[in-house]
Design a protein around this nucleic acid. Sequence first.
DNA 1: AAGCGGGGCAACCGCAGCGTG
DNA 2: CCACGCTGCGGTTGCCCCGCT
Length: 293
Amino acid sequence: MDVKARDCVESKEEDHMELRRGPWTVEEDFKLIDYIATHGEGRWNSLARSAGLKRTGKSCRLRWLNYLRPDVRRGNITLEEQLLILELHSRWGNRWSKIAQHLPGRTDNEIKNYWRTRVQKHAKQLKCDVNSKQFKDTMRYLWMPRLVERIQAAAASNATSTTAPAASTTSTSVVGTGQTVFADDHLGGAQVTSSSYTLENSSTTATSSDSFGTHVSPMSDFADYYSSSNNNNPNPNCLQATQDQFSGNYYNYGMDFQSLEQSNTWLDTIDGSDNLFNVEDFYFLQQQFNFNM
DNA sequence: AAGCGGGGCAACCGCAGCGTG
DNA sequence: CCACGCTGCGGTTGCCCCGCT
């Protein structure tokens, strides 16, 4: 809950009524919740006035949709959700609201923040543009298969243990080996269309006990995509496809892995932190893309 | 312990689309 | 047809928190 309200009342010279800006207080939240519970949502400008909130209609709408709505999911973005976000973004780009429609309980703002803070960060670390072909190819042919790998591992762990992994949802099954998850426009969950693995009945049910604030699952960052041995990759076709597709190598695409090697922050950490690569991963990339180091 | 810097996220801003009078 | 208001979307900003030095 947002208890860090400050005295950020700002007056608009042209307005008689002072409009509040900045973080919402608990009292404001209750007002909005109570009013919507009684009168429903919509017509936000009149709602704001009728509810006695010194906020713009847009602010009320945003607060409701992104935070107060009862079906808003709080907590870690699951592996399946990460995979879906990557896939859907590769199809639709920055169409956050459209992407959010396929992640029940997740808001466009949340997904947008996830993308900007997590995905773009790694693009920056790779010194390539997040919209560049090489970065998209890296996502599709490296990160996403590795993510599927982790989903499979989590599913297998679920099957053999009564203790569920932290980042796993309950009813996901990953079938076969392959490349790409697609979320059809009419689907709420991920399904496979043109590849050899599938996500069936991908559950996006809230784990609900999570505290406020969305956090990416600590076991599911991009660093994980590189953290296991190449030998364990269940998707050899994917990597083969990668090499088939790119006769060149990623270094030639402009990915500055040499500078990564020279960067201590990249290679010194093997503890599963937020770094994209560790030493093992570096050799993995080297092998897969014929880097000349 | 204090200062600093970056990450992460809530909230704001500007714009476009749509409906209505 | 036009003006106006409302809504929704994507981009951006502000600031708290936390780790590092």
